[in-house]
Amino acid sequence: MLNNTYSQFSMLIGEEAEAAYQQEVRAEGYAGFRRLLDGLTEAIKAAADADIPGLEQALAKASRLFPEPVQFSPSWECIWAELEATLTAKKHVLSSISPAERSGEWQVIMDNPQVVQEVVCYPGLDFHDAAYLYAYFRPQLEKSEYIRLQKIQTVIQELGR
C-alpha cells in the first residue's frame, strides 16, 4: 500500500503545489522525507510494465524538488541514483520477460565465485517479488559477483522429520 506522503507527491500539479509540498516535507524533516522515499520504493517494488514511465517522471520530480537528500540523512547522499538504478534494472527485467512467461515460481541467486562466501538465494518467489529483488541488488554488484533471476521449471522438495 502506498503511503499518504507519496500519494500526495504523485498528485502534485504545478509549481505552486510542488513548492508547498517541498516546504511541508522540509519542515517535517527526516520523517517526512523518509515517507516519500518509502512510497517511491514501494511504487518501484509494485511497478508493472505500464507504471515505469510514471515512476521515471516521479523520480525526476523528486530529485528536482529535493536535490540534496543528504540534508535529511547522510545515508541518502546517493539515494536518487540508487532508486534510478533499481528502476532501470526492473525496467530491464520487465522488458526482457513477457507477461505470458511470468507465472510460476522464481528465484534470485547471487554469488561471487572468486571468494569464499556463501551463495545467497531467495527461492519460492512470484515474478514481481523476484523482479524487484533482482532490480534492487543488481546495481550493487561488486567485481566478479553475479546475480541470476530464474524461473523454476521442476522442483523436488522433501521435508525432514
Rank of each mutant, 00 (worst) to 15 (best):
Y30G: 14
F33S: 04
R35S: 15
L36R: 07
L36G: 14
D38L: 14
E42T: 08
K45D: 07
A47Y: 00
A48S: 13
D51N: 05
L55K: 07
Q57E: 13
L59A: 12
K61N: 03
S63I: 01
S63W: 00
R64D: 02
R64N: 04
R64Y: 00
P67Y: 12
P67C: 13
P69A: 07
V70A: 08
Q71G: 12
Q71C: 15
F72D: 13
S73E: 13
E77G: 04
E77L: 01
C78V: 15
C78I: 11
W80L: 12
W80M: 11
L83E: 00
L83V: 02
E84V: 09
T86Y: 06
T88Y: 07
A89D: 00
K90G: 09
V93G: 03
S96I: 08
P99M: 08
A100F: 05
R102V: 10
S103I: 11
G104V: 06
E105N: 06
Q107D: 02
V108L: 06
D111E: 06
D111Y: 04
P113L: 12
V116P: 09
E118D: 14
V119W: 06
Y122F: 06
P123K: 08
A130T: 10
A130Y: 11
A131W: 11
A131H: 12
A135I: 02
A135E: 00
